[in-house]
Design a protein around this nucleic acid. Sequence first.
DNA 1: GCCGTTTTCGGCCCGACTGTTTTCAGTCG
Length: 588
Amino acid sequence: MLGMKKGMSNKEVADLLEMVAAAFEIKDEDFFRVRAYKNAAASIEHLSSQLKDVWDADKLEEIPGVGPSLAQHLDELIRTGRVKHFEQEVKGLPLGMFELMKLEGVGAKTAYKLASEFDLKDEKTAIDRLRRQILAGKIKELQGFGEKTEDELLKAIGSVQSGSDRLLLPEAEAIAEEVVEYLRSSGLCEKIEVLGSLRRRAATVGDIDLAVMTDKPTELMEYLLKFKGIKKVLSTGSKTTMFIHSSGRQVDVKTQSKDRWGSMLQHYTGSKLHNIHLRKLALEKKMSLSEHGIKKGGKLFKYAGENEFYEALGLKYIPPELREDSGEIEASIKGGLPDLVELKDIKGDLHMHTNIEIETSHDMGMSSVSELLNMAESLGYEYIGLSDHNPKMKGLSESARVKVVKKRNEAIDKEIASSESSVKIFKGMEVDIRPDGRLAVSDEVLGLLDYAVVSIHASFRQSKEEATERVLRAFDHPRVKIFGHPTGRMLNKREGLDYDWERVFEECRRKRIAVEINSSPERLDLPDMLVRQAVKTGVLLVINTDAHEASSMKGMRYGVGVARRGWAEASNIINTWPYKRVEKWIES
DNA sequence: GCCGTTTTCGGCCCGACTGTTTTCAGTCG
């Protein structure tokens, strides 16, 4: 458990530090030492690169929250697979306690008391054995425990075992919308906002955070408790109610008055690390921050708007997508915040699938060209790019593939001729990158196209080296203009491929190949951290929906969110360009 | 443990809610 497996992930290292922090906590070590470990754990968990790579570059101490002492421990962990000091600290503790800490409402101290009392040494059986003790009524006999705690523990055990993945954005939005609509029907809300990770447009969302502007918080919370969608109330008061929604998801609702609304939005949007950094900054100026406002010399100053809140700290407004404590506060002070791309900047979409039958290698689209055109028109686009999958390799001769692509071109031309739309069409194709880097179509087929989106749909187990060579080879053909959903990840389902990103981005920059930000909510690929690296490298980016039916083209906003989280400006994104400029780039 | 536009020492983010407590500790976000 304490050893570092080969390829230990950042999350696993963070868990290890959390474990040591818990050990300190029950030994009543200096509280600040405990927090130092927890801070370092959070910092490593949210690192944009692998810890091993940071170690390779000898930059452990540049990680926020990691100083000389922790750097030394981490060095030992990476070199030898273990940390003697950590092992010593955890020695003698019942290991079952670390399992119990996964239960809602159970922290280090409670877990330790329970695990020692009932001798829960085995992590695998700890929770099950605890359950039997509860059922036997043994918990309430302990000092500091009562019947309610027994009930809560039992419920917590029930829910930890039905643990599930994080929510994709549309799922989270649907739950939020249901609760918002109910709250609105109370007539007690002046304003409701979705906050937390959903407002920051993180790729996946853990729970739903809502803030309500009201001058009748008590009545509103009473009304909320009657909501049919509540499975279980976790806690409730006039300021905060937390409950489990019927979907199994936690929803937090907070109330605030109009004059304190700005500080509320700020506080509840997070991220936690962003807020901690802000509060440290405030302390240096002898100010103290909370969701109620800013305290200076014992006096509370209130902020109705988020803008004023940041201004009061001497900062320029920081858009929610940037609030991850990854340099945005420093940039705000120095005036170096990016002018982020917005949905209204988007003038086209270069990755979508039609229902034209060409015996594709993967799913074909559901919508006709004219349906896609209509949608593009309603979105105010100047152009779209049709990029059906390439004709399949198996069971189709080369001449048959050429023929079917020619037929598709004719079908598209016919649509264009009969269309009254002003939206321009590019004839593209999404072409598989095969395991060895060859493309799944011949040069002759590529010659029939305006451009190719090259992407990976199989062989995801390649090493970083193999995968890098694979995609670099695929970039060789001049018709290749877009690198589609680069990592191939599927959120909650499949890790994507890892490349030598420096080489991949450099090659894309040199060949003016646009790296795609795929807006499909189950992909959101390129991931935001890598978008940021791409922006720094000067790589062209394109935000596409990969729509398989016309309505999915409305999902562009998900990709724009990713771009914004990656600090991208409109100038980094080619589909903010007007038609003529894109045409020139495609022909180049 | 970490960290530095008042510091290499002496600080370290803030508030809400719950349960078992007669004044607060534990947990959470």
